[in-house]
Design a protein around this nucleic acid. Structure first.
Length: 105
DNA sequence: GGCCTGACTTTAG
DNA sequence: GCTAAAGCCAGGC
C-alpha cells in the first residue's frame, strides 16, 4: 500500500512525535518547524484526522495561549488529564507554557 | 477547478 | 484579560 502522507503531513507528524513527555508545543510552533509558520490551522486539521495517537502525541499540542484546542479521542478533558499525568503544569484551564512549553533544538 | 470547513494566530478595540 | 475581525494553509466535496 502506499501511504498518502503528503510531505507537509509527514513533517508535521515528525515534529509532533518529537515532543518530549512533560512538554507541550503550540500549533504555530509545529507549523513553523514544518516549514509553514502560517499553517497552524492545517496542522490542527492533521491532528483531527490523525488516528495515530500512539505514534503522534497530538495531546501535547495546544493553542498559542496554552489553552487546549481539542481532542478527537474523548475531548479536551481527557487531553488535560493526560498532560497532567505526564507532568505538564496547568494554569487554570490552560497549560503553563512558562514551565511546560517545549523548546525545539 | 472552485467553494467550504477546520483541534490556529495575530492585531485592534 | 476578553471579544471581534481578518489572514493563511491544506483537505474534502
Amino acid at each position: 500500500m502506499k501511504a498518502k502522507t503528503s510531505l507537509f503531513q509527514t513533517t508535521v507528524y515528525g515534529v509532533t512525535s518529537r515532543i518530549p513527555k512533560g512538554k507541550v508545543a503550540t500549533y504555530g510552533q509545529i507549523a513553523k518547524l514544518a516549514g509553514k509558520p502560517q499553517a497552524a490551522r492545517a496542522v490542527g486539521m492533521f491532528m483531527s484526522k490523525n488516528t495515530d495517537g500512539k505514534a503522534v502525541p497530538c495531546h501535547r499540542v495546544v493553542a498559542s495561549s496554552g489553552a487546549l484546542a481539542g481532542y478527537g479521542m474523548g475531548g479536551v478533558g481527557i487531553k488535560k488529564k493526560m498532560l497532567l499525568t505526564e507532568g505538564v503544569h496547568f494554569k487554570g484551564v490552560k497549560v503553563d507554557l512558562a514551565t511546560s512549553k517545549w523548546v525545539p533544538r
